[in-house]
């Protein structure tokens, strides 16, 4: 019984990090209709910058703030200097449909190589902001630690902030409007291009947090966030790619499920488990768990 509870808790902490990544993907998907595979690269770049700051100042939270800022800046830059140019050029021919997806892949490779050339490929780590020793329950310790509590708390704060931003502010309304009906939003006086760039930068910042949190007691390398991207994508698909709430639920379910596989079956089946979930969701409920009988838009 204790093992079940500790698996649940660890899964919650893992899932909350997936939630951030999947929100980053959903935000970009809603506004641009592109699954931004470069998100892993953007998050990695922000995490490297956050790591530099955190290891120099020895304050993790300062590093986190810088990672958010860097992520937001990179996200806005990618949209402004890259996606806009891309959409202006690639408009016809057999490659038009696939061009944006392939372009984000190229961007992922580009960021990876730049990070590799700058920081090198060796594994890096920093001192975790809180104890990674598990809590003591009864006469034993469980793997759930203060760090996990901090991770869940940080993610919750960010999720609440995002929910307030999207539901209570004009900017949030503009973001939602230009995601659902760009032309009508534009007619209503919203500068949709600028709103989209803001959306990209929010996604970038959220991705930066995900990168920092997932590596806070783990190693960072130019390849270490690929799996986070994959699980974030799976979570987003569970939520139907459109819904932020759905993707958060999807991420928590996925995190808990994968942790159960990890604790009860073994590492070898974690990825296979995640992939099977992806295939199953796509086959059974391709619109995601939040779908209300509406046709898939793409």
């Amino acid at each position: 019984m204790q093992k079940v509870i500790e698996t649940l808790l660890i899964g919650l902490s893992t899932g909350s990090i997936y939630a951030l990544m999947s929100i980053a993907l959903v935000l970009v998907w809603r506004s641009t209709r592109v699954v931004n595979f470069a998100q892993a690269g953007q998050a990695m770049l922000s995490t490297y910058i956050g790591f530099e700051i955190a290891s120099r100042s020895e304050i993790f939270w300062l590093g986190l703030v810088f990672a958010i800022a860097a992520g937001a800046l990179v996200g806005a830059g990618v949209d402004y200097f890259f996606m806009r140019v891309l959409f202006k050029h690639a408009t016809s021919g057999p490659a038009a449909v696939v061009a944006p997806v392939i372009a984000t892949l190229g961007l992922l490779g580009l960021i990876r190589s730049i990070v590799g050339l700058t920081w090198g490929g060796e594994f890096r780590s920093i001192k975790a902001p809180a104890s990674t020793d598990g809590f003591t329950v009864g006469d034993g310790t469980i793997p759930f630690s203060t760090l996990d509590v901090l991770i869940i708390a940080t993610v919750s704060i960010i999720l609440i902030a995002l929910a307030l931003l999207f539901q209570r502010t004009n900017l949030g309304l503009a973001l939602r409007a230009s995601a659902y009906a760009p032309e009508i939003a534009q007619l209503a006086g919203i500068r949709t291009a600028r709103t989209r760039t803001i959306g990209w930068s929010i996604a970038g910042g959220v991705g930066g947090v995900a990168g920092m949190l997932v590596t806070s007691n783990n190693f960072l390398s130019p390849y270490s966030l690929d799996l986070l991207l994959v699980f974030g994508f799976i979570a987003a698909v569970i939520g139907g790619l459109e819904s932020m709430a759905g993707s958060v639920i999807g991420a928590l379910v996925l995190g808990i499920g994968l942790t159960f596989i990890l604790n009860y079956v073994g590492t070898s089946l974690v990825f296979i488990g995640g992939f099977s979930v992806l295939i199953l969701v796509l086959l059974i409920k391709p619109d995601g768990i939040m779908a209300k009988g509406k046709a898939r838009r793409a």
Binding site: W29, R33, V35, V98, V101, V230, F233, V237, L241, F275
Partner: peptide, 14 residues
């Protein structure tokens, strides 16, 4: 589009 790209990418990673 995006679903297929993501699924195959997941496969390439995993």
């Amino acid at each position: 589009g995006p679903y297929l790209a993501g699924t195959t990418l997941a496969l390439a990673v995993g």
